[in-house]
Design a protein around this nucleic acid. Structure first.
Lengths: 147, 147
DNA sequence: CCGTATCCATTCCGATACTG
DNA sequence: CAGTATCGGAATGGATACGG
C-alpha cells in the first residue's frame, strides 16, 4: 500500500501496524491489564475469529507475546512486549484528545489516573529539547540516509 | 460499532474519527503544511473519490475547515482547526514509535526537527503531574459521571 | 477455554469517466 | 483544479458451527 514517498515516513509505517480498526483497541485493553483471549473478546465485543486474526497479527508484529498463564491454568496469555508497551503514549494521546473534544460537559466517561497520586495524568505535549512546547508549524522534516 | 462499555471510552471515540485508513495520514500532511486537494492527492497517492470522502468527513468532524485560497486562486483550502491541530501529539507519537521500531539502523527515513534549534523533537513520554514518567501499570481508570 | 473453518453481508478502495 | 458518478474487486466483519 505504501508508495515510495510514504515508505520512508515513520508515521505511514506505524499506521501499517497500528492503523486498522482493532489494533489500538486491543492495546488499550492490554494496557488496562487484560491478558486472556476471553477477556479481550468480552470487553471488545467482537467475533472470536476476528480477535484471533488480530491477536495473531500483533504477535507477528512483535507487539504481543505468548506466555504461560500466570494463574497456573493450562492456557496462555497475551502480554505486551517492549515494542507494544511503547505504544502507550499514542493511546494516551488518543484518550486525551477524545476527552477534550468528543464528550459533552456532564457526560459520563472514563479517565486515566496516576495510581501513586490519584491525580489525572499530565496532558501530552510535543516539546523541543529545551522544553518549549512546539506545534506543527514550529517543525520541519529532514530526510536522513544513514543512521 | 461502539457497545455500551466502549462508548464511554475516549480512546474508542477518538478512533471512531481517527481510526480509519486515511484520516491520520491526511492530518500528517496537513501538519506538514499541505492545504490543497491536489497536494493531498499527489502526496498520498489515493483515488480522488476516496480523498473527497475523507476530506468531507474531516470537515464534518471539525478537524479541518474550508477557507479561501491564500495565494489568491479561485479555489479553497483545507486548513486545520484547533481540534485538528490538537491531534499533533498523536501523530508525533506514531512517528517516534515508527522511527524506533520500524526502521533498520542505516535505513533512510524522515525525521522531525524543531525549526528554532534544528534539533530533533523530544521523545513523547507519559508523565504524572509531579513529572514522574509513568507506564501503563502505574495508571488506573476511573469512571466519572459529572463534569 | 481457546481457538479454527465456513459462509455471507458490508464496507472500503481503486480505476475510470465525466462535470463545472 | 476540484471534485462527482459509477462499477467491480478486495478486504473486513459478524454469526455460527466445530475441534483440541
Amino acid at each position: 500500500m505504501l508508495d515510495d514517498v510514504n515508505a520512508q515516513c515513520p508515521v505511514a509505517r506505524a499506521l501499517e501496524v497500528l492503523g486498522d480498526r482493532w489494533a489500538l483497541m486491543i492495546l488499550r485493553d492490554a494496557f488496562d491489564g487484560l491478558r486472556r483471549f476471553s477477556e479481550f473478546q468480552k470487553n471488545l465485543g467482537l467475533a472470536k475469529n476476528i480477535l484471533a486474526t488480530r491477536l495473531k497479527l500483533l504477535l507477528e508484529s512483535g507487539l504481543l507475546q505468548l506466555q504461560p498463564a500466570s494463574d497456573g491454568s493450562a492456557y496462555k496469555e497475551y502480554v505486551l512486549t517492549d515494542k507494544g508497551r511503547s505504544v502507550f503514549p499514542i493511546v494516551v494521546g488518543l484518550r486525551q484528545w477524545g476527552e477534550r473534544f468528543l464528550f459533552e460537559a456532564g457526560e459520563a466517561r472514563s479517565e486515566l489516573l496516576d495510581s501513586a497520586s490519584g491525580k489525572p495524568i499530565e496532558t501530552l505535549l510535543v516539546r523541543a529539547q529545551d522544553g518549549r512546547v512546539v506545534g506543527p508549524e514550529d517543525c520541519r522534516r529532514r530526510v536522513i540516509s544513514h543512521g
